[in-house]
Write a protein that binds this DNA or RNA. Structure first.
Lengths: 169, 169
DNA sequence: CTCCTGTATCTTGATATCAAGATATACAAC
DNA sequence: GTTGTATATCTTGATATCAAGATACAGGAG
């Protein structure tokens, strides 16, 4: 009996007129995301990094050389607002992990470029982070893990979660 | 090709030495949770409510008469820290949706009780909220939804997500 | 060229959250 | 009883986030 199952039982007592079956899926989805995030935060904290910092560094890192994205591209990749992106860049710039480079052709655009220090910080923790995620998933059986992944792929499709459009050149 | 699949492709180019398969599950899990949360927030906003406000009201509502939990019980049910609970109670008290009642036997304890207004607010939006969740899930096929739910149940079990212990009397 | 509209980023103000510590109370051991 | 330890809530300070608006620039229409 997990937490969400218990909540659903309570509702069947208190509001038998409501069909709370969506909670079985969506309630657990958000709870599991929160629980896993706590574990992930813990691993990054051991390496003097916040999860949001790794998100930025990893977004730049995986974009390939020259490890540079515009502020707007970061907005869309990380699903955050532009104000938050500004704040994140500023803090990472202060740590020396990224630098701002104004676009020469379009002066509105800011290119955020990973520094060598930033790349090192990202690469140094990436393996540990993935091992942690692997260990979490290893707690489930193979069959269930496949079901979960298949279901999430279908959900991503259903919600139209496409990657942010590449910049037009 | 969803966003996470695209990210994994990028990693296979940039860091072919890393096995990023955990992203297929955990990356999608957190992304889907965030996307769904946005839709849920929108529905509550249309009814002049924040998601966290509904969380509190619903926690109290489903506990049954007299619709009362202690601050600590709310901490554990909602997976938030005690400072956040204090803040939430204060704001909901100002809206007249809950009231604080000091325990007579143990003066440290605060009972948070749903008012009639609070119960009405919760019940009024609950149906719409569930319809919204149902509509989201209806975007996937039945088979995939079952797989997803089964996988999440297994994950909750694996992470030991038990309901918060009932108070000892 | 000038105007207009759209776009990219940043700023501002409000707020939700957490970590750490403060306060008040209960309870057990002596 | 007194003392010490554990518990429940609240306070404080820092910070991450968002919404809305400001600023700066681009690019097309005339």
């Amino acid at each position: 009996m997990d937490a969400v199952a218990s909540f659903m039982d309570q509702w069947s007592q208190e509001r038998p007129d409501l069909d709370v079956t969506p909670m079985a899926t969506i309630g657990r989805l958000s709870r599991m995301a929160a629980l896993i995030q706590q574990r992930i935060d813990g691993v990054f904290a051991q390496h003097d990094l916040q999860s949001w910092e790794f998100d930025v560094l990893a977004s730049l890192r995986r974009s390939g050389k020259p490890y540079s994205l515009t502020a707007g591209e970061l907005d869309r990749t990380m699903m955050i607002t532009s104000g938050t992106t500004t704040h994140r860049i500023t803090r990472l710039e202060a740590r020396g992990f990224v630098e701002r480079v104004r676009d020469e052709d379009d002066r509105r655009v800011v290119h955020v470029r990973l520094t060598d220090d930033g790349r090192r910080a990202c690469d140094a923790v990436h393996g540990v982070h993935l091992d942690n995620e692997r260990a979490i998933l290893a707690l489930m059986g193979d069959e269930d893990r496949v079901k979960l992944t298949d279901g999430l792929v279908a959900l991503a499709q259903a919600l139209g979660d496409v990657p942010p459009a590449a910049p037009r050149r």
